[in-house]
């Protein structure tokens, strides 16, 4: 109870480091969600609208990618952005850009698969109506995404939830550098290791609250959809 009280005091007292870390985590996570959505939502819609050989394999691949451990994605991106890697000159490693890139890749298959699954639950008459009215694939995609905006929003929330709670990518690509790349989860790991349990608990409470809020929002969205 004492630890919890002290954790709350740190949060409410406006501890600068803690609030910087919370702000940075939100910045990284929102950016990564944005970038993975840019690619993931159209990909999910294309999978939904297209009928091509290998479509089922593509869907199965996306689903399988959701289960890849974050450290494996971290390792993959590390090999790309390390000094000797093909993107080494961009100087992304141990910088926010590297964390955002890794987290975008982490959420991409999840957002794609969730958007695809969500759109499949849409009334099939929408797609048939668009076809019979002669809409091009691009027009069909925009109309379907408009009608399925709530399931797309749910996919984004789930993607955001996955990113904000991950530790492997942020640790491997960000390096947990104070006031540069430190996120809530990497800070929790560090603080707990150092024995600063109250600080870890304070951040843990924030992560937990965010996870609850995202889940509640997601459920509201599903109900309305």
């Amino acid at each position: 109870m004492t630890a919890l009280r002290e954790a709350m005091a740190l949060l409410l007292g406006g501890d600068a480091d803690i609030w910087w870390t919370i702000g940075a985590t939100l910045r990284f996570s929102l950016s990564a969600t944005f970038f993975s959505a840019l690619l993931g939502v159209p990909s999910g819609a294309l999978l939904f609208l297209s009928r091509f050989r290998g479509r089922r394999i593509a869907v199965a691949f996306m689903n399988a990618c959701m289960a890849i451990p974050t450290v494996v994605i971290g390792l993959f991106v590390y090999s790309l952005i390390s000094r000797s890697g093909p993107l080494g000159s961009l100087n992304l490693l141990y910088n926010p850009g590297g964390v955002i890139l890794g987290q975008s890749l982490l959420a991409f298959p999840l957002i794609t698969a969730m958007a695809y699954t969500g759109l499949q639950k849409l009334d099939p008459r929408y797609h048939e109506t668009l076809l019979t009215l002669g809409a091009s694939r691009r027009r069909r995609m925009s109309a379907i995404l408009r009608e399925g905006r709530l399931v797309v929003l749910q996919a984004l929330l789930i993607g955001f939830g996955r990113i904000i709670g991950e530790v492997g990518v942020a640790m491997m690509l960000g390096g947990n550098i104070h006031r540069q790349t430190r996120t809530m989860t990497t800070a929790i790991a560090l603080d707990a290791g150092k024995g600063e349990f109250e600080r870890a608990l304070a951040l843990g409470l924030v992560v937990l609250s965010l996870a609850l809020i995202i889940n509640l929002l997601s459920q509201l969205v599903v109900r309305d959809a």
Partner: peptide, 23 residues
């Protein structure tokens, strides 16, 4: 083709009538 229970898109009736024309 018109469904037994047609679906209309989000928006007003005017939007729906204009939809295909804009396409």
């Amino acid at each position: 083709f018109l469904h037994q229970q047609p679906v209309l898109f989000t928006g007003t009736v005017r939007d729906n009538l204009a939809f295909a024309l804009k396409l």
